[in-house]
């Protein structure tokens, strides 16, 4: 185990650090969800019902 990893194991995040991490995680979750919705919606708009027509 590297020295950094060893130190990380013993790090206790402060309340401010935990709060900041939660805030970043929420933002990433919202951005990812928005991206999925955009890809889905634009695919339907561009391809219409053809989006479900597959040869497999």
């Amino acid at each position: 185990m590297s020295a950094v990893a060893e130190k990380l194991e013993t790090v206790k995040p402060t309340e401010a650090q935990l709060k900041a991490r939660r805030s970043r995680n929420m933002a990433i979750a919202i951005a990812l969800a928005a991206f999925v919705i955009i890809v889905y919606a634009t695919s339907i708009v561009k391809l219409g019902s053809a989006v479900f027509e597959r040869s497999f």
Partner: peptide, 23 residues
């Protein structure tokens, strides 16, 4: 985005306090 941003002179680790609003 890395959780561990930099190491202090004493080798301690520093966790990010950047919130979503900073980004």
């Amino acid at each position: 985005m890395a959780l561990v941003e930099q190491h202090g002179l004493d080798g301690s680790v520093r966790l990010s306090e950047a919130t979503a609003s900073d980004y």
